[in-house]
């Protein structure tokens, strides 16, 4: 059981780290959003899964409550993260940031 926990938490830390590095390494807003949104959502998913497993494995009323609340936090995170990233991408485009080195830009024709 503890090995499962180590694996889940390890994957979480790994992907959150990748997201943070992607944030520094990629060239423009859109590619940074790619890295940041995907990796931090996935990393947080696995971290939260680790805590959920921990809560249910410990048992008892307090730890079950902990696990249920983590599930709610996880759903909130999964719904809000991609939606927020749309909002940022759209706002960045409308405020005049063009994708750097783009081979095609279909949005330009429309607006």
């Amino acid at each position: 059981m503890s090995i499962l926990l180590y694996v889940l938490l390890g994957i979480g830390v790994l992907f959150n780290g990748l997201g943070a590095i992607a944030l520094v390494r990629f060239p423009d807003v859109y590619t940074r959003l790619h890295g940041a949104t995907k990796c931090t959502t996935f990393g947080s998913l696995f971290t939260a899964l680790g805590v959920i497993v921990y809560g249910f494995a410990r048992g008892g009323a307090q730890y079950n409550t902990l696990a249920i609340h983590v599930i709610i936090a996880l759903i909130a995170l999964l719904v809000t993260n991609p939606t927020g990233s749309h909002a940022i991408a759209r706002a960045a485009y409308r405020s005049g940031v063009k994708p750097k080195g783009a081979v095609v830009d279909k949005l330009e024709d429309r607006s």
Partner: peptide, 21 residues
């Protein structure tokens, strides 16, 4: 650009939520 800063802020928020959990 301001967009980059907002992306940074969004990532920071997710990381804070994960570390709170």
């Amino acid at each position: 650009t301001v967009g980059d800063r907002v992306v940074g802020l969004d990532t920071l928020n997710t990381l804070v939520v994960a570390s709170m959990i």
